[in-house]
Design a protein around this nucleic acid. Structure first.
Lengths: 260, 260
DNA sequence: TCATAAATGATTGACTTCAATCATATCCAA
DNA sequence: TTGGATATGATTGAAGTCAATCATTTATGA
């Protein structure tokens, strides 16, 4: 029997809420919870999936909550070859007892996963990258510090004055930073707030390593992060000749290549 | 053909890694990723499930990642009747443009969900409760600030000196706080670091509301949070006579009852 | 070295999920 | 008020999932 449109919408909202709260629900529980037949529950799931509000699985569904996280991890899987090499080279620099800063972005995520594999003792990890916390929270014997700041809706990162101020009070042995582009004039990033935080971190770090794969070469972004003279270490799958061809000359010892 | 034990363990570790990265995977993809038959994949899933390292679903499996979150949300669902009332009463105090602090714990989660339903304009939410961020990140027009601090593994909350320092720099209109127990001598909480942060928040807040349901009455915890004279507002499903019977007398106007 | 235990893949049958179809009831707009 | 559109539940057959069983292969320990 047909039912008013707003009732359908309300039920579907409730369904997404339920999935958001519970993470995963099998069809049978959805029917019970919503008081509808399986056929209707499936129809709701189809509708919501085509609006990208949930993710269907065989036998049930996942809340968008999971979708955001998996999409983030999905993004990570793409540049895997290059990013994996960069992450391994970066993680090899980390020694027991160090205080390590990890930037926003998927490269930092790859480094964190690498650290989980080969975990040095008494590590302190400092970051504002919320996507890392699920990974890092379960590291035994490691200490994780979040700088704080304002939550950026789309990206899962904290920025702003609070973040800059907190960074200025830290001691950092090794900072892994990323950027959106590199040209002959230096490094580029998308947002002024990200760059402000990166500057604050660089000022407090004994060593700053920028991690950029070859897809960033020749690209710019709205904001200029800094000239090459300010870069202490560049970890990349690019070679010195490739960089020189793009007009980038580095001081010797600056480039840390990835061996894959 | 039998295979060495360490190979099996390695594959199962890899399986949990995969699920942690992807959130959900159907059996077919698991077989492909791991290079084993369905039968073996299922056996691995059974083994890992009995060790509580993953969650099986019909047709696939979820990473423990989801399990932690759902368990948190599961916990929330239990005290629902009381907590829901408290959350509604609390959310009713929030007016447009306010800066609101939300504490650790499931009560704050309930308040955040309530705020999502009826969202005042230009809200600023300040918190160290990471479990809230997924909920709050999607609130349109609201600003979310995280204080920062050290990540506590079990609880998804940030504490320590960084948190206290950051709290001291905030302006807060309304703070919603919780505690683990209440007796005639005042409020109790489990950890010194939590209490230090709560004190710092109370010092900066125009109004501090403690949210405790009746299950907390008469219970103590390792650390004393403060005497009743310091409590500005108590939101609870308890009545004044019930409190008096437990030896607790409040200044008039302190108790904000829940009407369910 | 040998016997036992363990891991694997294939197969089977019971059970579940799913999309499509259909009849029915009710809404919504003309 | 009326006719078409739409939501719903039941049914059905195809496809998928799952646990149990069995034969085979190989690690492991005595």
């Amino acid at each position: 029997m047909r039912v008013p449109r707003h009732v359908v919408e309300a039920r579907r909202s409730r369904l997404t809420e339920l999935l958001l709260e519970r993470g995963y629900l099998p069809i049978s529980e959805l029917c019970e919870e919503l008081g509808v037949s399986e056929a209707t529950a499936r129809r709701d799931l189809s509708a919501l999936e085509s609006e990208d509000r949930i993710t269907r699985t065989y036998g049930g569904a996942l809340g968008e909550f999971n979708a955001t996280f998996t999409s983030f991890r999905e993004r990570l899987r793409h540049g895997t070859e290059a990013k994996g090499g960069i992450a391994r080279a970066a993680a090899a620099l980390v020694k027991p007892g160090m205080k390590v800063y990890l930037d926003a972005g998927t490269t930092a995520f790859a480094i964190a996963q690498e650290l989980r594999r080969h975990l040095p003792e008494r590590l302190t990890i400092i970051t504002n990258n919320l996507a890392l916390l699920e990974t890092l929270g379960s590291l035994p014997g490691a200490k994780t510090i979040v700088l704080g700041g304002q939550l950026l809706e789309r990206q899962s990162v904290l920025l702003g004055n609070e973040a800059v101020k907190a960074a200025a009070a830290q001691e950092i042995d090794l900072a892994f930073l990323s950027a959106q582009g590199m040209t002959d004039t230096g490094l580029w990033n998308s947002q002024r707030d990200i760059i402000r935080l990166q500057h604050a971190v660089m000022k407090r770090a004994c060593r700053s390593c920028f991690c950029l794969d070859r897809s960033k070469l020749g690209r710019t972004a709205p904001e200029h992060l800094g000239a090459w003279t300010k870069v202490g270490t560049l970890i990349s799958d690019l070679s010195l000749p490739e960089l020189r061809q793009a007009g980038i000359t580095l001081k010797p010892g600056t480039l840390l290549p990835t061996h894959s």
